[in-house]
Design a protein around this nucleic acid. Structure first.
Length: 270
DNA sequence: CGCCAGGTTGTCG
DNA sequence: CGACAACATGGC
């Protein structure tokens, strides 16, 4: 059972391993991951991206998750006109898409990102799922629910090895489980409303809130500024700020983030 | 072995 | 408000 996508602008490695999601793994002959309560395998043959699932599951879940109904070529063309440097970053990895992830999962995973590198983040997220997630198949677990996590303690969370982030995780879970985070209002509201609402969570500051808005609520104008983006902005767009990228700043941010981290990789390898 | 990691909090000037 | 240490842990 499989569905073929050949609409272009979808790179599996660039989209699944660019630091927006942490549960996808390169299996060599394809990618595997868990999201939205489902496990999925993807592979590639030439221009075709193959979703190993039913047409129904593809239509109901993955088409939206991978943002396949959005015209990336059009957005990229529009962004490319803003700056030649931005165009260069986009052309470097035009197959990056913004995944439409579950908001609670994004709150948790980006709480875990703080002061931590990406390989380690993946480890913590995986241990969190293995320890507290609902079993989907042998050795495969969904991301934990807010209710399950809210019942934990710093001690019971020890296997995750989240360090000082454990207490933040618990607070976030308790607030979400307690209905104190207005998901629907954040979805329909403007960026500043979302920022304020999310930053009421202990352990969620400006950067994590921005990531949650972009990756968890598909607020494409959100522009997370981490150490890499700050460096990139200083070097590539001196004196400029996120405003220059307009309503699709979040996408620009992803292309810049990936570009600054990977532009020299081919050189180093040779 | 030491530096740094997709930051946030608490504290101090 | 801006600067700065502390925070747990492990990847490189």
């Amino acid at each position: 059972m499989s569905v073929i996508y050949n609409g272009g602008r979808l790179s599996l490695p660039d989209t699944l391993d660019c630091g927006q999601a942490f549960r996808w793994q390169d299996k060599g002959n394809g990618w595997e991951g868990t999201a939205m309560g489902r496990q999925l395998r993807l592979s590639q043959e030439g221009e075709n991206i193959i979703f190993h699932c039913s047409q129904e599951e593809y239509d109901n879940i993955w088409r939206s998750y991978f943002d396949l109904d959005t015209d990336y070529a059009a957005i990229q063309a529009q962004l490319s006109e803003l700056s030649p440097v931005l165009k260069q970053a986009i052309d470097f990895a035009p197959g990056i898409r913004i995944l439409r992830q579950d908001p609670f999962e994004v709150i948790c995973t980006f709480i875990l990102t703080q002061n931590c590198n990406i390989p380690r983040i993946k480890g913590m997220v995986e241990r969190l799922c293995q320890s507290f997630g609902t079993k989907i198949a042998d050795g495969v677990f969904d991301f934990p629910t807010a209710e399950t996590l809210a019942q934990q303690t710093v001690e019971s969370l020890a296997p995750v090895r989240a360090g000082f982030r454990a207490k933040y995780l618990l607070e976030a879970a308790r607030m979400v489980a307690g209905g104190q985070i207005p998901f629907e209002d954040i979805k329909s509201g403007d960026l500043d409303f979302g920022r304020k609402a999310l930053q009421r969570i202990y352990g969620v500051g400006p950067k994590v809130a921005e990531c949650v808005l972009l990756f968890g609520f598909y607020k494409t104008a959100a522009f997370p500024q981490d150490v890499w983006i700050k460096r990139a902005m200083a070097e590539l767009f001196p004196g400029k700020g996120p405003e220059m990228f307009g309503t699709e700043a979040g996408l620009a941010q992803q292309y810049i983030f990936h570009y600054i981290r990977n532009r020299n990789k081919d050189v180093e390898a040779s």
